[in-house]
């Protein structure tokens, strides 16, 4: 089955495949701080009505949209898979807190 891709980055995930750390995660890790910096600096300059501020701010918005576009399908897949196991893990946590982990 063919997977949906954008610029070589995958956009549809089966729940099990999404568990692994892949290049889509690394793209998010790199783009995310860049988006923060562009939004913060761009907005501060744009309040003074500077054109460079507007451009930087718009680049920040584009980076934010791109980031979510790439990572959201994977996060959705991870979340749906993990929710199935959460009850079992919570039970383990309660055993740890009650000093019965290995019973």
């Amino acid at each position: 089955m063919k997977t949906k891709r954008f610029l070589g980055l995958r956009r549809d995930w089966g729940p099990e495949e999404a568990e692994a750390w892949t290049k889509e995660d690394w793209v998010a890790i790199i783009v995310s701080p860049l988006a923060y910096a562009l939004l913060m600096i761009g907005l501060a300059l744009f309040i003074f009505l500077r054109l460079d501020g507007l451009i930087i701010f718009l680049l920040g918005i584009i980076a934010t949209i791109f980031l979510h576009f790439i990572i959201d399908p994977k996060l959705k897949a991870i979340s749906s898979e993990y929710e199935k196991k959460q009850r079992e893990y919570l039970n383990r946590l309660e055993l740890v807190v009650r000093w019965r982990e290995d019973e």
Binding site: S32, A35, Y36, L39, M40, I41, L43, A44, I47, T64, I71, D72, L75, K76, I78, S79, S80, Y82, E83
Partner: peptide
């Protein structure tokens, strides 16, 4: 969910940084 956890701190901090601007 894991997705909600990720977005909660991402957007909370984005608001914090733009507030600083």
């Amino acid at each position: 969910t894991v997705r909600d956890a990720a977005y909660s701190i991402w957007w909370g901090t984005a608001l914090t940084l733009t507030r600083n601007s």
